[in-house]
Amino acid sequence: MSDRLEVLKTSKLFIDGKFPRSESGRSMIVHDRAGKVLAHASRASRKDLREAVEAARRAQPGWAGATAYNRGQVLYRLAEMVEGKAAELAALIDACESGAPGTAAEGGAGEVRACVDRLVAYAGWADKYSQVLGCNNPVAGPYYNFTVPEPTGVVCVLAPASPSLLGLVALAAPALCAGNAVVAVASGASPLPAAVFAEGVATCDLPGGVLNILTTQQDELTSHAASHRDIDAIHAAGLDAKNTELVRAGVAENLKRVVVRSLDRADWFDPRLCENPWWIEGFVEMKTMWHPASV
């Protein structure tokens, strides 16, 4: 018996810039890969999801109204925060994430490096994607006509189990850089990296409510997210066939924009595949404006 008892942390949810426990009072046990109890995490309920969506809805106009330059800087700041927590995050990933090789480039340390780089990439995209996705249109008449991408609104991210943190970051960052607010539901299998990542989010100048992070048994919230009428889009990966159908059926609810990705673990680490404006494009709405250009 050691002469000092370790202080154990039960990770909490991250909603509206604050760290509440689940309103349901529930928590869940997190095991490491060997099946040993590693820690406890708050287990978000349907009501927590609703509250996170409300917070996101409130925060979204302000975030969308920030300059693209400012959004880019804030996301870069988030990358700085994650870099600072690299050791802690890597250890958690190596301890509990399935499929993460212990030491290779795709292990915990590699995954955290990829997260940082992914955030840096999308920080850079914040003030560029609209120049790639938007344009002037040469209409046949005396009109000035142009198309600009605008954020879709509130995007729900359903993160994969592996890579749990990179998956969450890669799904959230494109939506965030375009001025959307995000409610991310981490994988139930590996909630701790997401919970610690939230501590980085809390200190990175991202306004409260712009990125909310819930840990829970993800399955429990999938159908609620799909049918929630105030979620404008879903960006998901790693869903089984049943949950994929559930999420896609959410289109019928309120014309949600739904992107369900299916990537191998190694694909998530591929910048060519994951760091491009076509990942942003699913979470913007193209607005085309006409004005007469003759007197």
């Binding site: 249109n137 008449g141 006509n145 309120n254 193209m286 006409w290 004005h291 007469p292």
Partner: peptide, 30 residues
């Protein structure tokens, strides 16, 4: 998805058309 400023109901194949929210998704044209 389309905002006509000091005009209305103008269409062109080079100009994308389509909606936000429950007016659908995807664009036609452009």
């Amino acid at each position: 998805g389309v905002v006509w400023m000091n005009t209305y109901n103008k269409f062109d194949p080079a100009s994308p058309f389509g909606g936000f929210k429950e007016s659908g998704f995807g664009r036609e044209g452009g």
